[in-house]
Write a protein that binds this DNA or RNA. Structure first.
Length: 176
DNA sequence: CTATGGATTCGCT
DNA sequence: GCGAATCCATAGA
């Protein structure tokens, strides 16, 4: 996996077109990443890493290629790819994608046939990724892996669902 | 120790 | 379109 280091806002669009695969519960599911958001370190007020290393975000400070999963609103899991140098904190939230493998399994896990992976919480549910996978190495041969792909043309917009540093256009959407 | 507020989703109006 | 659901780390006393 190349280009997983350096500035998060530069590494983020490189993830578009990459695939995210999980081999969990005996099933293989995979998506192509089409939407991401970059979250920085101490310099990004909207990032979980902005207040330093804590219990919840410790994975964000690991090396690039580490999986960072956190619980959102007490209900959903959100999946991130760590990109920052060790100790700095910085990750890319995978917000959207399209199923490429095991969409039938995803539909079963999601309890519906549509809107399988068009939101951060939905992706985790579709791929069966939870907090127990937090800290996993996505570049190794674990149950969740990141597979490099071609780069796609993209548009950048403001991030969604945050209340700080709203002006940064660190959301990257693959152009269709 | 207690209170608070989310990098969201879904269902009902 | 709007609000509830629901967990737990963080922040404040």
């Amino acid at each position: 996996m190349r280009a997983l280091s350096g500035r998060v806002d530069e590494a983020a669009p490189a993830l578009l077109g990459c695939r995210l695969r999980s081999d969990i519960e005996g099933a293989t599911t995979e998506i192509v990443i089409t939407e991401v958001e970059a979250y920085g370190g101490a310099d990004d007020p909207a990032s979980h890493a902005s207040r330093g290393r804590t219990t919840r975000n410790r994975s964000m400070f690991e090396r690039a290629g580490t999986l960072y999963v956190y619980r959102s609103y007490g209900v959903h899991w959100c999946l991130n790819v760590v990109t920052g140098p060790v100790g700095e904190g910085g990750a890319i939230l995978v917000r959207g994608g399209e199923p490429t493998l095991g969409s039938d399994v995803m539909a079963e896990r999601r309890g519906r046939a549509d809107h399988l992976t068009d939101g951060p919480g939905k992706i985790c549910q579709a791929l069966a990724v939870t907090g127990e996978h937090d800290g996993l190495d996505l570049l190794g041969d674990g149950v969740v892996r990141l597979i490099s792909g071609g780069h796609l043309p993209f548009d950048s917009t403001a991030r969604v669902g945050i209340s700080k540093a709203v002006e940064r256009t660190w959301r990257f959407v693959a152009r269709t």
